[in-house]
């Protein structure tokens, strides 16, 4: 028996979320008394692969079939199923990211398994197999029991700690069979988001809302992001008004984020917005309205005009960074 971790690489590199996932898979394997193994698709150099061992994976299968260069949910599902079956994996874990959301459900059906999507912790019991997950868009959590022999999990981003265990990892090439028709949907092109930090990757997010009155006032928000090495995001009305690009919208119908620090400026905190951000570790709210609902969820608050507070805060952050 084994816990198989799908360690997605991005042009041969792993992300922090990958190491979170390996730590999670390793701790789950410890609880089950089994071993954590990993699979990655594409070319990754040896020193990068060895990093996975540092977080507890004992073995990694590298699938290099050339036709897998482009993502296809059908093809990737087939490949991961082959690695899982060959190694008697009974738990398979994915990140709750675009590829995980596309592949995990297919794999669940293919392996006659059950799926807990958006897990926030390792299983609280292994028999029955019970795991806590996000529900109601972050407004609640639920304990789910998976009754099938094979269990598939996706891990909510930023919800598990990275644990360095040290340790060696065995690297093995795996040649997979790609089923016919797995690339029936033709890839025309890949469009990368512009050079900036994506909202789901950023450790710190500076987020602004309609309180900023217009797109021309975002300079001070971008300045704060630059000082702190943060990403920028916004509330829904801001993207609806086309003040900011749609990929910056965080909230229930935008991107769900969980950064270490979320600074909300001129965002009142409607329940739909909070649902997408309330897994952040620390939240700061800056708003002119002392009754803004965001203050009920925030850890720190300033009641004040963003146009006065933000420039002062930027100076204070700059001074802090210069002195530390």
């Amino acid at each position: 028996m084994a816990v198989l971790i799908y360690t997605e690489n991005f042009n041969g590199k792993f992300k922090k979320a990958t190491y979170e996932l390996v730590s999670y898979g390793t701790e789950t394997a410890n609880k089950l008394g089994s071993e954590a193994i990993a699979v990655t698709i594409g070319n990754v150099d040896e020193s990068t692969l060895k990093e996975l061992g540092n977080y507890g994976a004992k073995k990694v299968f590298v699938v290099k079939n050339g036709e897998l260069k482009d993502f296809s949910a059908q093809a990737y599902t087939a490949v991961i199923e082959q690695v899982a079956s060959n190694n008697n994996a009974d738990v398979i874990v994915f990140g709750n990211n675009p590829s995980g959301r596309a592949v995990a459900p297919r794999l669940t059906v293919k392996m006659n398994a059950g799926l807990a999507a958006g897990a926030v912790d390792v299983p609280s019991s292994t028999s029955p197999f019970k795991v806590k997950k996000r529900a109601y868009s972050g407004k609640a959590f639920a304990d789910v029991i998976i009754n099938s022999d094979v269990k598939v999990l996706t891990l909510s981003q930023n919800s598990y700690k990275i644990v360095e265990t040290g340790g060696d990892i065995e690297i093995e090439d795996f040649t997979a069979e790609i089923p016919e028709g797995a690339y029936a949907v033709k890839l025309v092109e890949v469009v990368k988001s512009k050079g900036k930090l994506s909202v789901t990757d950023a450790d710190i997010l500076i987020s602004a809302g309609r309180g900023l009155k217009g797109p021309e006032n975002w300079g001070m928000i971008e300045e704060m992001a630059e000082i702190l090495g943060a990403g920028t995001s916004c509330s829904r009305p801001v993207t609806d008004l086309d003040w900011r690009p749609h990929d910056e919208h965080v909230g229930q119908t935008g991107k769900v984020v969980a950064p270490n620090l979320y600074i909300a400026i001129g965002i009142s905190g409607a329940i739909q917005h909070l649902a997408g951000v309330n897994s952040s570790k620390v939240m700061v709210c800056i708003n002119t309205d002392a009754d803004a609902p965001f203050f009920e969820s925030a850890d720190y608050g300033i009641v004040g005009d963003a146009f006065e507070v933000v420039p002062k805060l930027n100076e204070a952050f700059k001074k802090f960074i210069a002195e530390s």
Binding site: A135, A140, A142, V144, I145, L313
Partner: peptide, 28 residues
């Protein structure tokens, strides 16, 4: 394949700590 056996609401956050807008260094 799965059943939901229990729900939880998120833990209540401690009260928001307010910082004077004239003293933003305190927030830092």
């Amino acid at each position: 394949m799965t059943e939901v056996v229990k729900h939880y609401l998120p833990e209540a956050k401690p009260q928001c700590k307010m910082v004077d807008p004239e003293n933003v260094e305190e927030l830092v």
